[in-house]
Amino acid sequence: MKASLMLLLAPLVSAAPTVEHRQASQSIDALFKAKGKEFYGTATDQGRLQAGRNAAIIEANFGQVTPENSMKWESINPRQGQYNWGQADYLVNWATQRNKTIRGHTFVWHSQLAGWVNQINNRDQLTRVIQEHIRTVGGRYKGKIYHWDVINEMFNEDGSLRNSVFSRVLGESFVKIAFDAARETDPSAKLYINDYNLDQPNYAKVTRGMVANVNKWLSQGIPIDGIGTQGHLQSGQGNGLAQTIKVLAATNVKEVAVTELDIQNNNSNDYVAVTRGCLEEPKCVAITVWGVRDQDSWRPQGNPLLFDSNYNAKANYNAIVQLLSQR
């Protein structure tokens, strides 16, 4: 069955959330957009969307979704030539039916990578595999994905290139291979390079890793549109990430975004600091938090998200509302 027909056959659900399911006084997405930004989003997937009040909370309060796992290589392309579309299709259909923006996550990543890819040791073969994977997945969702994390987590903490099958076989040329394939596949999508621990402005992973290399690759004509800083923080690190947003924006990319934000422990001030940091930087277009409820977080210790286990908006959500409600 053709991909377009499969997407059309996904079940339709009313897109109008009821007020009692909002569980928050105001939508941070609507308030953020009123300040000229593109979205305040969250990560989810089919299992989350079909459980509890997750779907209703996202409909009411967030403007964008990132697939938490369903588009990662081991999930969507576990064996060569075999693609598992069900969960990713569900997410894309759910979002497009509700006019929610979608971030695609991720094409090329050393982790959660299908085992068969790790066995490749031939340059030409790995090049073809990367291109085929991007053309197949990106082509299926062409025109529906707003941002693509083309490459994820490629730098070591000292700013050097991470050891992976991609760097071992292809060196840094895999960056051009991946971004060129993504641009060819979906010219309208904004193409990102995404990484974690980009939380301090003078950290080597920021300066010698992301900043230096992205400027170099842009000068070589590689079509990198944006830098994503994930933002997996501890309490007290919000101001550092806010400063780093400016450092990343000072590169020659068109835009930056906070892509996977969660903050452990006493985090209201940190959520406000990160949100303010994005507001104050014109190139910062969006923020995505990595989940809805604390208990569903990939690192639930320290209650890192914006809603509690009963889907009640927490103090940090309300602190963001207060910030965004200021003139």
Rank of each mutant, 00 (worst) to 15 (best):
A3P: 14
P11L: 02
L12P: 06
L12D: 08
V13N: 02
S14D: 14
A15Q: 07
A16T: 12
V19M: 15
E20C: 14
A24Q: 01
Q26C: 01
S27M: 02
A34S: 11
K37R: 05
E38F: 13
Y40H: 07
T42L: 04
T42P: 05
T44D: 13
D45R: 00
Q46I: 04
G47A: 03
G52F: 08
G52N: 12
N54V: 12
A55L: 07
A56L: 03
I57V: 05
E59S: 11
A60Q: 04
N61Q: 03
Q64P: 02
E68C: 00
S70R: 13
W73Y: 09
W73P: 08
W73H: 14
S75D: 00
P78N: 03
G81L: 12
Q82E: 14
N84H: 11
G86F: 12
Q87R: 08
L91P: 06
W94H: 06
W94D: 02
A95W: 01
T96K: 06
T101V: 11
T101Q: 09
I102C: 10
I102P: 06
R103Y: 10
G104W: 03
H105E: 14
V108G: 10
S111Y: 11
Q112A: 02
Q112V: 05
L113M: 04
R123I: 01
D124T: 14
R128L: 12
V129H: 09
V129W: 06
I130M: 11
Q131V: 12
H133L: 00
T136R: 14
T136S: 15
T136P: 14
K144I: 02
I145K: 03
Y146L: 06
H147P: 07
E153R: 01
M154H: 00
M154Q: 01
M154K: 01
S160P: 05
V165E: 00
E172N: 02
S173R: 09
F174I: 01
I177T: 12
E184I: 04
T185Y: 01
A189L: 11
K190N: 13
D195T: 10
Y196G: 03
N197R: 13
N202D: 15
Y203M: 14
Y203K: 14
A204Q: 09
R208Y: 10
G209V: 10
M210R: 08
I224E: 15
G228S: 10
G231W: 13
G236V: 15
G236D: 12
Q237Y: 15
G238I: 13
G238K: 03
G238Q: 01
N239H: 15
N239W: 04
G240K: 15
L241M: 07
Q243I: 13
K246I: 11
V247S: 05
V247M: 04
L248Y: 08
K254H: 02
E260N: 09
D262F: 00
Q264V: 12
S268P: 12
D270Y: 08
V274K: 13
E281K: 10
P282W: 04
A286G: 06
A286K: 07
A286H: 12
T288G: 04
W290N: 00
W290M: 05
G291N: 01
G291L: 06
V292H: 03
V292I: 07
D296K: 09
G302D: 13
N303H: 13
N303K: 15
P304R: 13
D308F: 15
D308A: 14
Y311M: 13
Y311W: 10
K314W: 02
A315M: 14
N316R: 09
Y317K: 04
A319S: 10
S325N: 09
Q326I: 12
